[in-house]
Design a protein around this nucleic acid. Structure first.
Length: 460
DNA sequence: ATAGGGTTAG
């Protein structure tokens, strides 16, 4: 009777440890264990595994790993879940070596890895940009007598997408459907939809969106937010807003994610009144605003030229313990540029760089603003000093060089842009060709067109 | 334990 009571108590202890860890209350979790022991309720392997997950999530892999020693001292043997949790912790902090070490240690202790050990290893390879190795693990799973679970396929498809291999991911998805009686989950669709959205493949995205309905799935909040973002990115504002309306009708539009998406889009498309209405709704729902929501509001103030309001909001965010991230800094730098405060913007940019943030977008804002202000050579100097560029960096310069009738340089940058693997606008290509034909010789145009064709060939 | 939001060009 007493034994049963204590076992039941351990179960209760574990439930409370899990919820304390979830609430980021590790110290309370620790003292709950001590209190339990005092009352004769002994922690078991599940207690320690939960604690390990908590330490890995909230502190570090090392903190999680040190629990293993305490476990052994208490006479409890780590099991497969223990090591899987540690592998997840290593993956979280991008440590492939520690992830592999945990797999070794698991095997050395005579524990047989399960499908989740392999899932986590795959995830780790993908996270570190090693899709080939991840694929090898996937094949291993299929070769060995381990049955893959839905997450195995999801991690695989997501990993391919996140490594820029959307087409491969889609092919795997279709192969699984054709040959393996595979019923994808809504999560799988969300992964693929997001990737199509980011590749600006609007039609494919909408086709897949129809397909999930045909398979009997219902979109969830994540599906709706993803589709909305895709519509806005592809400039289909009307369809995006329709999705938001449907989302609201189905009771899904109650989180900060959906509001940030729609507010950003309304602001961009210049629908002021709707923007304010949405912000009022978002605040009325009563969630505590997170950093992304603050950034959305800070951006609104910047776009309206109210920099003081923007800085006030930055203070409010920081006072509630939310530190500015690269989005906040970029938004402020863009706001300063738009307000003509080029020098302040530059100082902020240098500050941002010194703090180790990724400054690419902020540089793009700065360059674009210099171009618009007619300081093309200043913009070019910055451009040449940058070691990472993207399509936006090139596009600002090419466009403005054309406006300034400096077609030869525009042509040169357009070619570098394509050679670096970035998309260019059709309109910019046309402007360069037209400009060359009015200012240069016919031979120049011919040469440029040939180089353009070769650049495209070598890339695709 | 795998999925979504917020920044830049035209």
């Amino acid at each position: 009777m007493r034994g049963m009571f204590l076992r039941l108590s351990t179960k209760l202890l574990n439930i409370s440890i899990a919820s304390l860890c979830k609430a980021k209350q590790l110290e309370k979790a620790e003292s709950a264990i001590i209190d339990g022991i005092r009352l004769g309720v002994l922690p078991d392997v599940i207690t320690y595994n939960t604690l390990i997950t908590g330490y890995c999530q909230l502190i570090s892999f090392d903190a999680g790993y040190s629990v293993i020693h305490r476990m052994r001292e208490a006479g409890i043997k780590p099991d497969v879940v223990t090591y899987n949790s540690l592998m997840a912790g290593a993956t979280k902090q991008h440590s492939l070596s520690q992830c592999l070490n945990m797999l070794d240690e698991m095997l050395d202790s005579g524990i047989i890895p399960d499908v989740w050990s392999y899932n986590t290893l795959m995830h780790c390879f993908f996270k570190l940009g090693k899709p080939d190795e991840a694929y090898r693990v996937f094949h291993d799973i299929l070769l060995k007598n381990i049955s893959p679970c839905q997450a195995t396929f999801n991690i695989m498809i997501n990993g391919l997408c996140k490594n820029g291999l959307t087409t491969k991911a889609l092919r795997l998805f279709r192969d699984l459907q054709r040959h393996h009686e595979y019923i994808p989950e809504i999560i799988t669709y969300n992964i693929l939809l997001n990737s199509l959205c980011e590749s600006l493949m609007w039609k494919d995205m909408m086709r897949l969106y129809d397909e999930l309905h045909e398979l009997g799935h219902s979109p969830n909040a994540i599906t709706y937010t993803t589709i909305m973002k895709g519509c806005f990115r592809c400039r289909r504002f009307d369809v995006g807003v329709e999705i938001f309306v449907e989302m609201k009708r189905n009771g899904y539009a109650h989180d900060l994610f959906s509001y940030c998406t729609i507010i950003g889009a309304l602001l961009k498309s210049g629908q002021k009144q709707d923007t304010y209405n949405c912000i009022a709704h978002m605040i009325k729902i009563g969630y505590e605003l997170d950093l992304a929501s603050f950034n959305t509001l800070i951006n609104l103030h910047c776009k309206e030229g109210k920099l003081e309001h923007a800085y006030n909001l930055v203070n409010v965010a920081e006072e509630s313990g939310k530190n500015c991230d690269k989005y906040t800094h970029t938004i402020l730098i863009d706001g300063l540029c738009q307000a003509g405060e080029i020098d302040v913007a530059w100082r902020h940019l240098e500050h941002m760089k010194k703090m180790g943030f990724d400054c690419l977008v902020a540089f793009n804002c700065f360059i674009n603003s210099l171009c618009k202000g007619g300081h093309l050579d200043y913009a070019l100097r910055i451009f040449y000093s940058m070691d990472v560029k993207d399509a936006f960096t090139y596009s600002s310069l090419i466009h403005n060089l054309c406006l300034a009738r400096r077609y030869h340089l525009a042509a040169k940058l357009l070619l570098s842009c394509i050679r670096d693997g970035f998309r260019t606008l059709k309109a910019d290509q046309k402007a360069v060709v037209k400009g060359l034909s009015t200012t240069g010789s016919k031979l120049d145009v011919k040469r440029f067109k040939l180089k353009l064709r070769i650049a495209k060939l070598s890339y695709y």
